[in-house]
Amino acid sequence: MNSLGAYTRNRILLSLFIIFAVSVFAFLIVHLMPGDPVRAVLGIEADEAAVQKMREELNLDKPFLTQYWLWMKGIFKGNFGRSLTLNTDVGELIGRRLPVTLSLTIPALIIAAIFGIIIGVICATNRGSIADQLLTVLVTIANGVPIFWIGIMMIYLFGVLLGWLPLMGYASPFESFVEYLRKAAMPVSILAIRPMAEIARQVRTNMLEVINQDYIRTARAYGLSERKVKYKYALKNALIPIVTLLALQARDVAGGSVLAEQVFSIAGMGQLIMISVLNRDFPVIQAIVLVITVIVVFVNLLLDISYGWLDPRIRMTARKVIN
C-alpha cells in the first residue's frame, strides 16, 4: 500500500474509533446522571404502574450493557428511538430539523467569509484611514456584543418599528425562496456577524503581515503595480490561514444557532438541543451527539485526507509516527 493509502486507512480507523468512543461517552453521561427521566416525562403525579410500564418500553429496566447494545442495534437499523418529551421518532425529528439549521448556518458562513474578507482587505489596504478606523471599531463591537441582544434589537427595529421583516418563524427555500429570504434575513445576519468580524480582523492582520514580507518588497522592486502586488500576491497568501479559521467559525455558528433559533422561534437543531437537554430527553441527546460527532469526524477526515493529498510532508509524518 502506498503512503497515501496507508495514511487514509489509518485516518478512517481512527475516525471509527472516535465515533465509537463518543457513542459510549454520550450513553454513559446521559444514563449515569442522577434522577429519573421517566418521571420527568410523565410528571410527579403519574402512577407508579405507568412509570414502570414506560421504563420497560424504554428498556431502562435492563442492564446497562444490554441497553447500550439495544441502542446501537437500533441505530444500525436506522432507529434512533423515540423522543420522550416530543413523543416522536428521533430520526424523523433530526431529519426534519437538521436541514433547517443548515439552511441558516451555511449562508451565514458564506456571508461571513465574503464580507469578512472584503472588510479585512479594505482595512489593511487603507491602514490608518477613517474607513479603517471606523470598520475596526465596528468589528470590535460586533465581536463583543451578545448575539442575543443583537437579535432582540433587530426584531424591534425591522419587525416591530419598521415592519419590514417577519420577526419569527421559518420557510423552506425549496417551498418559497422569497419567504425564506424574508424569514431567514435576521437569523442569518446575527449568525454571520461574529464570524464576519473575526474573519475581517484576521484578514487585516494577515494582510498587513504579508505586505511587510521580503517577497512583496521584491515584487514592488520588480515594478509590479501596487494593485497586482496587494491582490495577487499579498491577499492570496493572507487567505490561507482563513480556511482553518472558517472551520473554527463553523463550530461557533452552530453554537450560535441555539440562540438564534430560540430568539426567532425556529424549529431547528439548536432549539431541539435546548429542549432535549432541559428535559433530559436522553434518546434525542444521544442521537444528536452521535450525529454531530459523525458530521465533525467526517469533515475532519476529508480535510485530513485532502491535506495529506495536497502536502506529502503530512502523510509522510503520519506514516513515521504510526510505524
Binding site: G35, P37, R280
Partner: peptide
C-alpha cells in the same frame, strides 16, 4: 434541580 432529578428527589 433538573426536572428528572427534582421528581425523584422530592418524591
Amino acid at each position: 434541580q433538573d426536572v428528572s432529578l427534582w421528581s425523584t428527589k422530592t418524591m
